[in-house]
Nucleic acid binder design. Structure first.
Lengths: 200, 200, 200, 200
DNA sequence: GATGAATGAGTATTCATTCAT
DNA sequence: AATGAATGAATACTCATTCAT
């Protein structure tokens, strides 16, 4: 869609399709974070995004699809950021610290997005399983590697510990970004690291 | 109908009322556990309990009140059971182990109830805060006591660690009772204990 | 039902059937006056009367029957009182004044009852017609008699004037008893009399 | 589609919206007149207007809002019509006669609307006060002016008389339009005028 | 007669989704 | 692409009335 093309249109489209989509996603993220999936109507998301109700369905099959999209693209970004953060670090402890710090940074920069993912009161529309399950296998694999290297006690069940770590990180950080005066950023990071098994 | 007889038994209508109430609570617990607060209609709860729709409202102001009642009476029972479980134990590690074992036992005996409390996908109707916040202060206090006794590293922020412990226990056990083949009971208990700070 | 009869009953009825009925009527009158027929539930009437919900239906077929009973027994009493009030008075003006004064006295003594009959906002449950129609024929007859006696201008249509007089008296007095500071009793009576055709 | 054309016509959807709204108001007026506020369901109004149930709530917050809208816009029109009718008339008697005639004409032309406003059996949903109170102050003021001019006996309390006049006109005309064979239009007008204080 | 728990039809209201413009 | 009015199924909640005790 060239500039000249948009020029000849008699009624200039106020914004591009991609822009409209982005605006819908942003509006929905904010609303989901504060009111939950069921607490928000598609009409309200559209209004908040400055578009008509029907436009919503030009971009998303339904409300659940938008929710899924927000959640999984956030998870993808989060994964990528933490992957980059630990890139090149060999020491397990350094990796854990870097990953935790990156998680906290992400949460600070994308407060509402993080609350949609892990906030308390978030009704995950039946996708809570998918969300956490997409995180834990990687953690479990890492723990198994450590265990094989003799760096973890054999009594620690990898899958169980992975659930524990995922729960701990997600809930603690969600609790903290909800009200950052509850602790300093460093206290959050330090405490989470020390509770991680590799830090024993 | 002797005097002693009338002493022990409630009046006929009263017995019926209490019975109806209990049936509603049980039906609702099962349904909430599988479909969440919003996934269940008051009519369905009533039907499942074998009573008419209107009867629901004879016992509860609305669906949220029933949900609150289920959640908080479960929490109260859980609190009492864990309190009793650690009674008389002086060693911090023994306390942690006893508490964890009791939590797991409760979850096994009250699978659906536990899933309502801590299940993933549970939309706690804006009471997630209340639920976990009713648990964490006690944990934080215990941690502070340990820290003063020099049994915990000072870098561990009590409130943060309390959130982490609560999250870890509740989510891991909920994940496990959802499908108990995921690990053995002992693996769950052992892993949770070893991740607890006092077990370092 | 003799005294001895009520003596032999093993469980003394807390109150007589007639008493229960009276209590229901009184409670209903007060509630209807303030909240209207639809604004009051049969359960609330029973509770206010200090009896169980089911007792209501032991005395009245349904809510409408109770309403009708209240309305028509009030009308009967009102008719009788005004009949007595003008008894022996020959002068038309004296009769009008006596009737008006009696109406005002009745309204003062039975505020809520009067409001049920004529209050604004009273939803008469489809019996507004019956109520006023039970009053107007008498008024119309009296007007016709006066007209024949040449005491009223022939341009005054008796049935129309009767409606006007009934409306005027009922609404004005209802308006006044709603808040008696709006005028003095004498001002109400005097004004109503002067607006009556026989007072020209 | 010329500019002038687009000036006069509303946009297509807007026209449709206004049309739907009008249809709802008309359907509701007829239904309220015959069955009263409580006797009519929002679904029935919608069906009678030829739209879906939900459409009702696109135009009105609830049934009461629609009722209020009907009542107060009718009152506004009535006020304006009677204001115009007496415009330029100086003689009090002529004013009274013109106003009464206009009221009767309005009632004939808007039978159902008039019955909603003043019909017997109309449960005005707690707005009876507002309706009549919006009419009486003007009447009372006019009476006070006459009284100061010595055209009315001082015994006539203006506020009381205003209530009486409003009640008399509204009820008599409602009674008449309910069944116009009860009297001729002229008999109604003549009788009401003669009962008005300025006609003495 | 009285009780009060239970009934279930009835109603208001919401909201995801569609579709003519 | 966008609009926004319309749809109508879904649901929470009420309350007149019944009936077993």
């Amino acid at each position: 869609m060239s500039v000249s093309e948009s020029r000849i249109r008699t009624t200039a489209p106020a914004r591009s399709r991609a822009d409209t989509r982005r605006r819908l996603i942003e509006a929905a993220t904010d609303l989901f974070a504060s009111d939950g999936l069921h607490g928000v109507t598609s009409a309200r998301i559209a209004a908040e995004a400055g578009v008509a109700t029907g436009t919503f369905y030009l971009h998303f099959k339904d409300k659940a699809e938008l929710f899924r999209e927000i959640v999984f693209s956030a998870l993808a970004e989060l994964s990528e950021r933490t992957r980059v953060a630990i890139d090149g670090l060999d020491d397990p402890r350094s990796q854990v610290r870097a990953r935790t710090a990156e998680l906290v940074a992400f949460a600070e920069e994308n407060r509402n997005l993080f609350l949609v993912l892990f906030g308390r009161g978030t009704e995950s529309a039946g996708m809570g399983d998918e969300v956490l399950d997409s995180l834990t296998p990687g953690i479990a694999d890492a723990l198994r590697a450590r265990a094989r290297a003799g760096q973890l006690p054999p009594e620690l069940h990898p899958a169980v510990a992975a659930q524990a770590i995922a729960a701990m990180h997600s809930r603690v950080i969600a609790w903290w970004v909800e009200d950052p005066t509850r602790a300093t950023r460093d206290e959050v990071i330090e405490t989470l690291c020390r509770m991680h098994p590799v830090h024993r």
